[in-house]
Design a protein around this nucleic acid. Structure first.
Lengths: 117, 117
DNA sequence: CAGCATCCTTGGCGATACTG
DNA sequence: CAGTATCGCCAAGGATGCTG
């Protein structure tokens, strides 16, 4: 049988929930151009707290979208990178980014129109 | 200047936030095959409360993604449909749906692997 | 039928402090 | 540097009852 996205118990919807997560999207996009350290990500994704960044990265790692490699050094160094699966998702997400930026004017115009009534 | 998605105050990020909303995605997808009534949407999108469905529809309407047409009848009839802008987003979102369903096995396998450690 | 208003809870999230 | 641990808040969202 085909997965029903609208069923709250369907796995596909849980996958969508992860995709839909605000931070997950931004983190995956931030990893678009290759390996990044924890601190780099924290700096890049404006407004994310340490807690949420860690939590998001763990979630992405768990879902097989991101790899986490710890280097035995002092000071510690932890690298994050997209997996093949993660990169396949990246294609879609960068499409979303493009959509968001190109259609931003239309959305803002629509909002202004709506609020003016 | 180019919009910076990573800036929390950038409009493009607010657009992404709407896209990222769990219910917004499901509602837009539910409207893929044409006009739907309020009740149809409520039935289709499993688990959504009345409050959230209304709130989501208002948000989508405000952003110019959905139209709301009230028919002067008894009992009342309210139709929702995607705008051109909404349909342009639909293309991307159905891509996400496809991704979610086709890669679901990989994600579940990754989760099992992660949890087993 | 399609909603709005209200109350109430819960858990998401930020802030802070501490560690290997 | 890259996290964990803990506390506390508040706002998202569910449940219920009412209306045009």
């Amino acid at each position: 049988m085909e997965p029903n996205l609208y069923d709250r118990n369907c796995g596909s919807r849980q996958v969508l929930d992860r995709i839909g997560d605000r931070w997950s999207v931004l983190v995956v996009l931030a990893l678009a151009d290759g390996v990044k350290r924890y601190g780099e990500l924290a700096q890049r994704v404006d407004g994310v707290s340490q807690k949420m960044l860690t939590q998001t990265l763990r979630g992405l790692e768990r879902d097989g979208l991101v790899t986490r490699s710890v280097h035995a050094e002092v000071p510690p160094r932890v690298d994050y990178a997209l997996t093949g699966l993660g990169r396949s998702l990246l294609d879609l997400l960068s499409g979303l980014r493009t959509w968001a930026t190109t259609h931003l004017p239309e959305v803002e115009a629509a909002r202004a129109r709506y609020d003016a009534r």
